[in-house]
Design a protein around this nucleic acid. Structure first.
Length: 1017
RNA sequence: GCUGAAGUGGUGGAAUUGGUAGACACGUUGGACUUAAAAUCCAAUGGCCAUUAUGGCCGUGCGGGUUCAAGUCCCGCCUUCAGUACCA
């Protein structure tokens, strides 16, 4: 009986599905463990071998934890709202729900055939109304909440209303919009309901505001900062411009400090935490207000260096700063306006690309220094960003390089306020070495003292206070798209009202086209039935809008991260109980949060920050019992492709060649000509040898030989090449010049290349038809060899490998093992299908250890000492490896174990059965099959993990490496209980030692019992 | 620029607290089996030198250092990848 992996795998996948083997229990005596993957967006392209890497790792861990006696929740689902389905809908008219459904089917089939132990009964899809009902519900809760700074948590908006009506807002310490004015209880109670709503909107955790947004005209939507890469949209690479729009925003800034502090409590990688810290961008300093000469307005700035306040020699405002037009003097007005216009025209991308150019304009106005009362010129410059801090800076050229450069450029004085520091060349920004001078009451103080004193003095003047600033901005939450969650909001007199939660979900309406309307409204503006009847509590036709009982509904939809910010809680609840709640209290209490989360690092500042924010909010409001979603998080590295490069000849010179039309032959008439690798390597080698710095180096091929710089060289390879090329040129071509740059990399489909890098030319030209008129210079043995290059797995490089093909050819167990064997989980590594024969061969050997031609060969024979030693060292190593997520090394360990047991001719059930359990998380199908062949009738996944017994590894002797001056010369088997002295005596007396020493006396002999002997001298 | 990660054979990668560098695989070469191929099995495989077996020298990005002993620790560089960037 041989190893028929296809049949075995299909059989057990069916068995697991039918027996619901991996269904998690919400009531269990076992300890719980929650293993989660970042759920996929079901794209039309399906999975390539890079995608399942993290799923395989988490699956191994989940299966391992089950063996270890845990009740494991290991679910999977789909992040099924999103742009690609909508783009496809725009192009084809196909409803995104249909595309999504089709894609999900493909994903499910692909996932199923890899043998994951997912509990599919808990699947979620963010685009399902039963799911997004609760996304909308959470949105309503955010709307109905405000952030109370005094208790540092979110509270119901009802409590805020109560406080307003009883004490006004002066003592309310909230995170809110900056433009709220103070009012008393009497004033509040006298406000109209509309005025009250206006004020409350400034406090709600989700609110409508006119914000500068990243508008992407090509996609017709707003993008979040993390959806923009290098100034263009992450999806599609379209340009992005700044635009002011009324948008829903999330007051994530309220949680900045807690999001920062929370990082200390979770087990994530340093790089990920660092990304989030940078994104939150906390800086501690002071806010300072400057009076403006001749104006009532003041300019507020934020500075991290209040200690340098006496070094201020000018101020700079962002060109967009609201005071600019008021302050600008008539004399300067035309210049300032021209500058503002020029800046507005420059795209964000230009501004980023060009950080070297210093530009700015003087406004003509002066501010007053808070202490010296000296006038300070006010400039505008685009190096100051409107979106950060107050959009204005106090410029201290001696202490900040940008201010310094600006001052130099515009010949503004650079006063030096540092003791004993030369600032003639550059600014001085080393806080630790700062001693302040020329600064009145700050003279002689260090950074820390001076900062404290400066803030104190500013407070005395009423012109400043200590302040902490965060880079983290409130998150824009509206998207002008169709395929997303509708906001459960309608508008009464343009003021947003929430639909009562009992009427949710508010279902996505049908539209005939998925494009924005002619008036520029989002696609939902095309829906005819998209108005809210407040009396009937249902969606009705737009014709019925009377703004009395029937009102227009919100036309934007929620962004991609809405549904993914809480899905991990949804899995906790069984499908049957999901209607009335997003998850029951018992389920939430039992599963708490995700113990292990595996996914890509690209979500560092998007998904992973937003979900932490939502979880903290839900925690504050008592909806969940935890304030962090993911206790431990691992980023899997990307699997890269190994492209196959066929070298095509181009860019070479000829002489004397004319074709039949009399046109100079410069190479184009040789057509598609491919040269096998060894010839290319030969050219590279020869060029390397003779080039000596000449970048234009060429080898000259003549009909009578190969020449370099006029000298003939003997080179068989190049002579063959020469003959081949001359055969393709016109008869009177005299010379051909060729060099390392004479080749063009043509990528061939990697699936047509074998493990020896030989290209199947027939398939290649059949598949890449543009090359079907090509000629090939083969190796001596008739093969054609390609170069290999590692790059991202992508269709355009023809290096995509589909897991379906791998499963068919080698099986899912081979795929799983090979993905792990490739290298450390967190590391990026190239996929090369050639190597899979190694793990596949291992599975065959494993099979043979159990099964002979005539059937099962496992018996009840007693295990030998060696058998036990092999087993137990394997148990130890594999257990350590899994706990450390070092899956690659455990695959090697299995190989060693099977090699050893095969050599030992082990057939003992007492050894082979535990071995099977060890392997089953990695290669579950073969393990399950052999397990049942051994006579079990329940799944191997329920078997207990073997227990390591140290006694089997106890050795009585050790093969000591004997080193001389640190270099190992020979080994010597010695008993482990031998004393240091005896070891030294024995080693010194050994003939090889005497030979090594050649009569010298050792200066020192180091003996580390159980480790090493080192003889010095 | 800043932050983080990483540089080890032809390739992917191993190497507990510093203690036999290159495990395990791929590939390559030679051999067995076969009409042949595939599959399987056996042997060799870091480089250089030597060869009659024994051997010798060099080797973990580069340059220093600590140590009996360094891929591992310290100092200074270089390179690659990822993230971020006029953040006051």
């Amino acid at each position: 009986m041989s190893y028929h992996f296809n049949a075995i795998e299909a059989k057990w996948q069916k068995y697991w599905a039918e027996h619901q083997t991996f269904k998690a229990e919400n009531n269990s005596d076992k300890p719980k463990y929650y293993v989660l993957d970042m759920f996929p967006y079901p794209s039309g392209a399906g999975l390539h071998v890079g995608h399942p890497l993290g799923y395989i790792a988490s699956d191994i861990y989940a299966r391992y934890k089950r063996h270890k006696g845990f009740n494991v929740l290991h679910p999977q689902g789909y992040d099924s709202f999103g742009l690609p389905a909508e783009q496809y809908a725009i192009q084809t008219g196909q409803h995104p729900a249909i595309t999504t459904e089709t894609n999900i089917k493909t994903y499910r089939r692909q996932l199923d055939q890899i043998g994951f132990s997912f509990d599919w009964s808990r699947e979620v899809r963010t685009s399902n109304p039963e799911y997004y009902k609760w996304t909308q519900w959470i949105f309503v809760q955010l709307f109905e909440s405000w952030y109370n700074v005094d208790i540092d948590k979110a509270e119901s908006i009802e409590r805020l209303i109560f406080r307003f009506s009883s004490e006004g807002n002066t003592n309310v310490n909230a995170v809110c919009d900056e433009d709220v004015s103070s009012f008393t209880a009497e004033q509040w109670n006298a406000y109209s309901s509309e005025e009250k709503q206006n004020i409350l909107l400034k406090y709600r955790l989700t609110y409508l505001a006119d914000t500068e947004v990243n508008w992407c005209p090509a996609l017709g939507t707003v993008l979040a900062n993390d959806e923009i890469v290098n100034g263009v949209s992450e999806r599609g690479g379209h340009p992005v411009i700044r635009k002011k729009m009324t948008q829903w925003s999330m007051r994530i800034s309220a949680y900045a400090e807690r999001l920062l502090q929370g990082l200390e409590t979770i087990d994530w990688t340093d790089s990920l935490k660092e990304s989030q810290r940078n994104w939150i961008g906390k800086s501690v300093g002071a806010s300072v207000t400057f009076n403006v000469n001749g104006h009532d307005e003041v300019i507020e700035v934020f500075t991290t260096r209040p200690d340098t306040i006496f070094g201020v020699s000018f101020m700079t405002l962002a060109p967009e700063h609201e005071l600019v037009s008021k302050l600008t003097t008539d004399a300067q007005r035309s210049e300032v306006e021209a500058y503002i216009e020029a800046t507005a025209k420059r795209s964000e991308r230009d501004r980023m690309a060009d950080v070297k150019t210093i530009s700015g304009v003087f406004t003509g106005a002066f501010a007053e220094h808070p202490f010296t009362k000296e006038p300070i010129p006010i400039w505008i410059g685009d190096y100051v960003l409107a979106g950060y801090g107050t959009g204005a800076v106090m410029s201290v050229p001696c202490g900040d390089q940008r201010d310094y450069d600006f001052a130099k450029h515009f010949k503004i004085p650079i006063p030096n306020i540092f003791d004993n520091v030369d600032i003639s060349e550059a600014a001085f920004d080393d806080k630790s070495k700062t001693i302040i001078a020329n600064s009145d009451f700050l003279d002689g103080m260090n950074y820390k003292k001076a900062t404290k004193r400066a803030i104190y003095e500013l407070e005395q003047l009423g012109q400043g206070e200590g302040k902490t600033n965060y880079r983290l901005r409130d998150a824009v939450f509206s998207r002008q798209r169709y395929w997303g969650e509708p906001f459960p909001a309608y508008y009464v007199n343009d003021k947003p009202q929430m639909i009562a939660t009992e009427h949710l979900p508010l279902m996505l309406p049908e539209v005939e086209k998925y494009l924005p309307t002619e008036e520029g409204e989002p696609p939902l503006g095309r829906a005819d039935v998209w108005a809210w009847d407040r009396l009937k509590a249902e969606v009705v036709s737009n014709d019925l809008i009377d703004n009395v009982n029937v009102f227009p509904l919100e036309l934007n939809t929620m962004p991609g991260w809405a549904g993914s910010s809480w899905y991990f809680f949804r899995y906790m609840e069984e499908a049957a109980n999901r209607d009335a709640v997003f998850a029951t209290e018992e389920a939430l209490k039992y599963w708490e949060n995700v113990d292990l989360y595996i996914g890509g690092s690209e979500h560092a500042t998007g998904h992973l920050l937003y979900s932490r924010f939502w979880v903290k909010f839900m925690y504050d409001r008592g909806f969940v019992g935890v304030d962090e979603p993911f206790k431990k998080l691992i980023n899997q590295g990307m699997i890269l492709g190994t492209s196959a490069i066929a070298n095509r000849i181009s860019n070479f010179g000829t002489m004397g060649g004319r074709d039949e039309r009399g046109i100079d032959n410069v190479g184009e008439n040789i057509g598609n000509t491919f040269i096998s690798k060894s010839y290319v390597d030969e050219i590279r080698k020869v060029s390397q040898e003779y080039k000596s710095g000449n970048p234009l180096f060429r080898i000259t091929l003549k009909r009578n030989g190969v020449f370099i710089g006029g000298n003939q060289i003997e080179n068989e390879k190049l002579e063959v090449l020469s003959e081949f090329l001359f055969a393709k040129t016109t008869p009177n071509t005299g010379q051909i010049w060729i060099g390392t740059d004479s080749f063009e990399k043509i990528r061939a489909n990697v699936n047509f290349v074998n493990s020896a890098d030989e290209l199947d030319i027939v398939k290649f030209v059949e598949y890449q038809k543009e090359f079907n008129e090509s000629t090939f210079l083969h190796e001596d043995d008739g093969s054609f060899v390609v170069d290999r290059e590692v790059e991202k797995m992508s269709k355009r490089w023809f290096n995509v490998v589909n897991p379906d093909d791998i499963c068919e050819q080698y099986g899912a167990d081979s795929l799983r093992l090979y993905e792990m064997f490739l290298g450390p989980l967190e590391q990026a590594k190239p996929w090369n299908t050639a190597g899979i024969t190694g793990v596949h061969g291992f599975l065959k050997k494993l099979w043979k250890l159990f099964v002979a031609d005539d059937g099962l060969k496992v018996d009840d024979s007693e295990a030998t000492k060696d058998n036990l030693k092999t087993l137990h060292k394997t148990i130890k190593k594999v257990e350590e490896d899994i706990e450390n997520f070092s899956f690659n090394t455990s695959v090697s360990t299995f190989m060693i174990a099977v090699n050893e047991l095969t050599a030992q001719k082990c057939s003992s059930k007492s050894i082979l059965e535990p071995l099977l359990i060890l392997i089953s998380p990695y290669a579950p199908h073969i393990a399950e099959e052999l397990w049942h062949q051994l006579g079990h009738d329940t799944s191997i996944s329920t078997a207990a993990f073997p227990v390591f017994e140290a006694k089997h590894l106890v050795e009585s002797s050790k093969n000591y490496p004997i080193s001389f001056n640190g270099k190992m010369r020979f080994t010597l088997e010695l008993p482990l209980d031998m004393s240091k002295e005896e070891i030294e005596k024995t080693v010194m007396a050994h003939e090889k030692t005497i030979e090594q020493m050649q009569g010298r006396t050792p200066k020192k002999v180091i003996v580390v019992p159980g480790k090493i002997v080192n003889i010095v001298g």
